[in-house]
Design a protein around this nucleic acid. Structure first.
Lengths: 157, 157
DNA sequence: AAAAATAATGTATATTTTTGCGTCATTAAT
DNA sequence: ATTAATGACGCAAAAATATACATTATTTTT
């Protein structure tokens, strides 16, 4: 089982070419030796907030909602992560502290992960306010952030 | 037969409330004495570039695609209200999404209303976090915002 | 004004997506 | 170390959407 890898690949594929059905995406994944069922894809796409929109040609295609213009997340991850200094919970929201001037970059990175668990972020200079969507626990959010910002230590409680 | 009217109504309905299926939309239309079939809706939605996206709650909903907003971007915004793209509730706070770069201006506008119901706002580039004071309901806050930013459509639920 | 071309629509159906449920795996709690 | 809780997944069925085809309306051309 390698969900993370699959999610990453899904993002890459749909932002790289026009995919119009889950079955089609399934095949593309299979070419990369990643197998799952269409049902799983349906769930994954929701989690990534991928949506199917009428493209310019009129044909339907999948797009990353918040990451339309952005490139996929790649090697830079590790760099960005180093800017994170601390994470704190308050009022059911997470405060992510960064090195001065890095908040925007990290927030943008979080935004582009398009995770459904996150309602939105607001970045100042060295602090990010991360607002979870309703009904997601701190624990869940922490997990998500762990995926989005691998290696960052978190104070869950 | 009155396609134009129907298209207009579709836009109004889906931007005013959360609709999650064409059948549901069909019923809303019928309430307004506009009748057609699901097949026609499917075609109309494509024409309007409406798409179905996983909303914050995880549930699917129809939205008018960014083409609209994109047009706005080039234009000069005369009324600050027009910069507001969407409002979302999460964690008992309201997220006000704006066109890129407009959050500060809109937030400032909200602040200057000095409404007691609002504890404060924090603005990023295109998102405002509006923090209500304790013991004010979502509904109340929505009403306040309606007064402060007249004409902005809100999804209360 | 008739004919021809184009657009809109409904019906029935095909295609696609979503979901309830059972199972197995992973993680947390006792 | 067990047991409980959570998450991921496949399968199959349900739900939802898209479309081929036929028909009717609308517009354009002659």
């Amino acid at each position: 089982m390698n969900k993370e890898k699959r999610l990453q690949l899904i993002k890459e594929i749909i932002s790289g070419e026009d995919i119009s059905s889950q079955t089609e995406l399934l095949q593309k994944l299979e070419e990369k030796r990643i197998k799952c069922t269409q049902a799983t894809l349906s769930r994954n796409l929701r989690q990534l907030r991928v949506s199917r929109v009428p493209g310019n040609s009129g044909k339907l295609k999948y797009i990353l909602r918040s990451g339309e213009h952005a490139e996929h997340i790649d090697q830079e991850i590790t760099d960005i992560v180093h800017a994170v200094v601390d994470t704190v919970w308050a009022q059911n929201m997470m405060l992510v502290k960064t090195l001065p001037g890095y908040a925007a970059a990290v927030a943008s990175h979080i935004d582009r992960s398009s995770r459904i668990e996150i309602a939105g972020t607001i970045a100042g200079d060295d602090t990010i306010l991360l607002v979870p969507n309703d009904n997601y626990s701190r624990k869940t959010i922490s997990k998500v952030l762990k995926q989005v910002l691998p290696g960052v230590q978190q104070n869950v409680k």
